[in-house]
Design a protein around this nucleic acid. Sequence first.
DNA 1: GTGGTCTAGACCACA
DNA 2: GTGGTCTAGACCACA
Lengths: 128, 128, 128, 128
Amino acid sequence: MFLVDLKSRVPIYEQLKKKTLELIMYEILEPGEKMPSVRSLATDLGINPNTVQKAYQDMEKDGIIYTATGRGSFICEDVKEKILYNEETIDNLSKAIYEARLYGMKKERVCEIVEQEFKKGAGYDTNK
Amino acid sequence: MFLVDLKSRVPIYEQLKKKTLELIMYEILEPGEKMPSVRSLATDLGINPNTVQKAYQDMEKDGIIYTATGRGSFICEDVKEKILYNEETIDNLSKAIYEARLYGMKKERVCEIVEQEFKKGAGYDTNK
Amino acid sequence: MFLVDLKSRVPIYEQLKKKTLELIMYEILEPGEKMPSVRSLATDLGINPNTVQKAYQDMEKDGIIYTATGRGSFICEDVKEKILYNEETIDNLSKAIYEARLYGMKKERVCEIVEQEFKKGAGYDTNK
Amino acid sequence: MFLVDLKSRVPIYEQLKKKTLELIMYEILEPGEKMPSVRSLATDLGINPNTVQKAYQDMEKDGIIYTATGRGSFICEDVKEKILYNEETIDNLSKAIYEARLYGMKKERVCEIVEQEFKKGAGYDTNK
DNA sequence: GTGGTCTAGACCACA
DNA sequence: GTGGTCTAGACCACA
């Protein structure tokens, strides 16, 4: 479920964060639901517990999950709003479009790609 | 002209590469034209020559410039095609759109942002 | 294993790249296998870590190895195809033959040398 | 006649040396014949006179040309033997074949390339 | 003056 | 511990 790509240049903890958001948006993880423990997730994925720890801490800071000592980590109730009004996403998008335009891509081509992405199913792999 | 942001988390040599592409697309740098020498650019920007050289060597590998010891570095003739047909740009764009969609952004909103970016002038700062 | 000739005019990082390819072709290094860390290899060879890193980064660009910060560098799975279908090798060969012919060498002599090289064992030293 | 490729990574003085040998082998330059003066050649090619000077000095050291002060430089009488029994050429060839073999090229393929090069006319450009 | 290689050493992010 | 970026500075080949 939290599968990460160990060959990717994208830091593993970043992949874990993205994956969590993805699972939330796909409603595979529900608000209030318990996250796997740091240790078990690390063991399952064959990665360093520190890495999972870092992902969880980041997400706690961003209000995606909360940690109750001794009981584990849980998805926040208001998580979808947090994700929806995320300036970073808009920023990323603006920059990608800006760059495409700068490097000579026509608006029509950009729009085509937008259409394409909105037709696609959920099979896309966010770990680059 | 090659102004970089020393405080940015984006590596200086990456900024230099982007800046060069930008100057080429804005036709401030023309194919065949000589790039500033490694040392002079380093001095101008107050950075280490090694940093400039890394940017230049990267760009040489990417076919953006060519370099001849003793004479300097020059913009490649076919540089615009290289930039235009760059899969990385398309990839970046696809990923940004995918993510925006995943995080709940409607297609209409994405299209608005596309319009916005294509109306903008050239004042955008590529060093994040 | 990665022994280099510090006195050679061939840059150390180039020797390291060649040596790695050699070790892969001799199946001493297998796809998926971990490369020595930048620092340990540098210490072993008595050279600067930056020099090793340059070799590694070049090889990463060439798709020979991939690198993940915090975990190390690994031989790519499809490395042999990369090496086999390398135009540079063919190019070098063509040029060497062209030159031999130009400088008066008969085809028979060239063929003799081909035979010779294909009879040889593995003891050849690639660091010139 | 002495056309060089300013974009090449091969040093210009090396190109000049190779070009001279080529012209000798093609009997366009004959033993005893006068070479263009350093200055005129530099002007014709739009390159630095020091570069031509260096090529001439190298060739004098190799016994390809000799210089008579005040009169100019001339092709040596025994120049073809000098070129013919040149170990460097053989060495280069051996190395190129060795490498091709190391990188997985079959003997048959190498022989094909030999045939190819020996069928070719003189149109090949030695400045890479 | 022009780029290329290398060392020594610092500081950072990631695992 | 692992790689990535950067500085300061040396020495070299080429033009």
